[in-house]
Structure formats: structure tokens, C-alpha cells
Amino acid sequence: MKKNLQDFAGQLLLVGCGNMAGAMLERWLEWGLNPAQVAIIDPQAAPREKIAQFTSIAEWQAAGRSADWIMLGMKPQQLGEVAEQLGPHITNEVRLLSILAGVSLADLAARFPEAKGHIRILPNLAARIGAGVSAVASLGDADASVVTPLLATLGDVVPLAEDSTMDLVTAFTGSGPAYVFRMIEAYAAAGERLGLSPEDSLALANATFGGASALLAESGERPAALIAQVASKGGTTQAGLDVLDGDGQLAALLTNVLRAARDRGRELADIARGES
């Protein structure tokens, strides 16, 4: 059991505790965060031992007044409701953290003007095992480094100079694991269609993608250099690469995937601001 967060100070209130916020919380508890320092506002969240969970508006307000840290992890469309019920009860000693897709730092500052600092975090699901990446941006004088002890337990931390890039990062790294999982699923399905059993195809696909990613990370080489080590001219690998690279279709497909996810993040921001 890791104990790196035993010295974490203050009370942490999670507003929303779904898949992403829940994965972050489980990792923090594993690394020594005291459950008595955590409270949750989320009627849908599964009960967690020794962690207070609030459901009524009165409890929300009391929790907001007593919190030192508040992390917004609900749906972006719920921002207006949460700001209305919780915002007036946040003191100027509270640091506000947000993992809400599409909700900018300016939006947060407008909704929660009394907060001591506004910090936007974009983690991804691999945070559950400490292999994630968290992009982080802060507003004005807010120092994003104050959340480094929390975020470092989740994996890599990448500070962003501009909050305006967060919509693309949301699509690129936040949504990214789902796209990788889909590609592994499709790769396994292709193996099955060509004659492998479903079990063997999925096991081999998982091992192939996992091993390739581990090798890329460990070697420090560029992907192209490793491709050259696998593919030989006129060989089987090159025959497959010729299909993947044909007419730039793969790059175009992934560009369209990221564009769609980025644009949806912007739409969610408009909804959160009541503009759509």
C-alpha cells in the first residue's frame, strides 16, 4: 500500500463520482488519502466505506462551506444547477478543481467567483492504475502545482500554457483510451474473421498492442524507427502497412475522429453556459 498522500491536507469534496472521478478517488485512497478527508455529492455513486455521501441540497451547502478542495466531476450539462446550489456557499479559501469536458477556466471563474483558485484537469481512465496522463491549466494567479501531489499518483502530468488547447486535449488524451480500445477490438475482430478463435484473437490483440506500447515507451525511439525494425521491403508487414497508409486514409480518419470529439466538447461548453 502506497502512502504518498498521507500528508495531504484539507477536506476534499467530489461533486459527481462517476467512472473518471471514481477512478481518481480509488487511486488516491490506494496511495494513502484518508477517507475521512473525502466527501461525495452524487446520488448515483456507489457507497464507499468511511466516505460521507450527501444527497440533499442542505447537505450540499454544508459540505461546500467546510471543503478546502472541491472537484467538479459531474456532467458538464449540470454545471448551472451545481453552481446555483453550491456556488454561494464556497468560501475564498476553496480551491476549485474541474474535470468537466468543454468547461473553460473562464466559465468556472464566472460560475464560482469566490473560489481561491480555479484549476482545470483533464485526466484519462488509465489513471486507475497510475498509467494515465493529466493535462492541467490554471487561471490567473492560481498555481496548478498545488495539485501535483494528487495528479502524480495518476500518471504523467502535463501543464498547459493555454486553457484554449484543452478541448483538443480532451479529445486527444481524455477520449483517447476509448479509441485505442476500439482499435484493439477491431483488430481482434479482424483476426477472428480470418480464422482465429475469439479467445485467441482477443488475447493476441491485447498482447500485441500492449507490448508495442510498452516497447515504444521504454525505447524512447520514434514510432517510425520501430516500424522500420519490424517491416522489411516486400515483406508481410509492409504489405499490411501499404493498406493502412493507402491514400492517407488512416490519418484522415483519426483527424476526423479527434475533430468530432473536440467539437462536441465545445458544444457541451455552450450547453453549460446556457447558450444552446
Rank of each mutant, 00 (worst) to 15 (best):
N256V: 04
Q85C: 10
M183L: 14
D143A: 07
F8I: 12
A110Q: 12
A207L: 11
A62H: 13
R266K: 15
F8Y: 14
A131Q: 14
P159W: 02
W28E: 02
E26S: 13
A188H: 04
D163N: 08
L254M: 15
G235S: 08
F172M: 14
G132V: 01
P88I: 04
M24E: 07
F181Y: 14
T255P: 01
V257W: 00
T255M: 08
G73P: 04
F172P: 01
F8P: 05
L151N: 00
W69N: 12
V103W: 01
L29R: 07
F209A: 10
L100S: 08
L33K: 06
S164C: 10
Y179F: 12
V169I: 12
A110S: 12
A67T: 13
G10S: 12
G16Q: 02
I119D: 01
L97A: 04
L268H: 01
A272K: 02
V15C: 10
A101G: 07
D7S: 14
G210K: 04
Q249M: 11
L168K: 05
E267A: 08
G140F: 02
R120C: 02
G73Y: 03
L86G: 03
A144R: 11
G210L: 06
W31C: 15
A214Q: 14
G155W: 03
A144C: 09
S276R: 15
N92I: 04
G191T: 10
R262A: 13
V158K: 06
M74E: 07
A217D: 11
E162G: 02
P88N: 08
L105D: 03
L254C: 06
T91W: 05
Q11E: 15
A225R: 11
R27H: 12
E199F: 02
G155Q: 09
P149H: 06
G87S: 11
A101V: 13
G87T: 10
E26G: 11
G22I: 12
Q77C: 08
Q44G: 11
I70V: 15
E162D: 14
D247K: 10
K116T: 06
L139W: 03
V82W: 03
I184S: 00
A224P: 02
A205Y: 00
L12K: 03
V146F: 03
G130Q: 00
A46I: 08
T236C: 07
M183N: 04
P123H: 05
G274I: 01
A252I: 07
E93F: 04
A239H: 03
A9C: 12
T165W: 09
L79W: 01
A52H: 08
K116H: 09
G235I: 09
E199S: 12
Q85L: 10
M183R: 03
A207E: 09
G191D: 10
G10V: 14
A190G: 13
A131D: 10
A36C: 09
S197D: 12
A106L: 06
L13C: 08
G130E: 00
